[in-house]
């Protein structure tokens, strides 16, 4: 069953940046795009299980801090070597200054 959970405050993420959010034994990454929209993906890179929250966000791309694997964080699409498996994405909404993600 899916549910909406509160991930963070809208101001907790800078524009064009990412933070880590852990919930029920699972790690997520919460993004704020340069045009001020919010997105969520699984928190670990599909290449070697590295936390993407340590990586760099530029435009639509999150780059893994360890081996530079790149994903489009809006769609989860893997953008080339060394990553070849897409990243799972989650629906996001902002309500009352809070970022909520839909899990399950």
């Amino acid at each position: 069953m899916s549910e909406w959970i509160e991930a963070c405050g809208a101001d907790d993420v800078d524009e064009e940046d990412v933070i880590r959010f852990d919930h029920a034994g699972h790690t997520f990454a919460i993004y704020r795009s340069p045009d001020d929209e919010y997105f969520a993906t699984d928190g670990l890179c599909t290449h070697e299980q590295v936390h993407l929250s340590g990586g760099l966000v530029i435009d639509d791309i999150i780059e893994c801090p360890k081996h530079n694997g790149r994903f489009n964080y809006k769609t989860g699409e893997a953008k080339g070597a060394p990553v070849c498996v897409n990243l799972k994405t989650y629906p996001v909404k902002v309500e009352g200054g809070k970022v909520l993600i839909q899990v399950g």
Partner: peptide, 11 residues
């Protein structure tokens, strides 16, 4: 430790 310097090295 870990990926502490990664972002700034990339920049």
């Amino acid at each position: 430790p870990d990926t502490a310097v990664a972002r700034d090295i990339r920049l």
